[in-house]
Amino acid sequence: MKARIHVYLKPGVLDPQGAAVAGALHNMGYNEVEAARQGKLIELDLTGDNADAAKARVDEMCAKLLSNPVIESYSIEMS
């Protein structure tokens, strides 16, 4: 089983890396880019076959280590 976790900055938290990406894309002529936010993707390979139970554990991992609730949010995809 795999879990894909997207960690991203909460809306409203300034994202200097995202802003730099947007700026660079503008300079390259991609003016349709309104904004860019940069986050990270973490993939976990998991043992077990109960997807619901696994997801609950992953949610705990996110809260305890993989994200910082002060500035970040996350979403989990199981597959």
């Binding site: 938290v13 300034l14 200097p16 890396q17 730099a20 910082n68 002060v70 500035i71």
Partner: peptide, 17 residues
């Protein structure tokens, strides 16, 4: 200390990158 929750706030990438 901030990550431990012992201090308020968080430290992010420098604005100048």
């Amino acid at each position: 200390l901030a990550e431990s929750g012992l201090l308020p706030g968080a430290l992010m990438r420098n604005a100048g990158l």
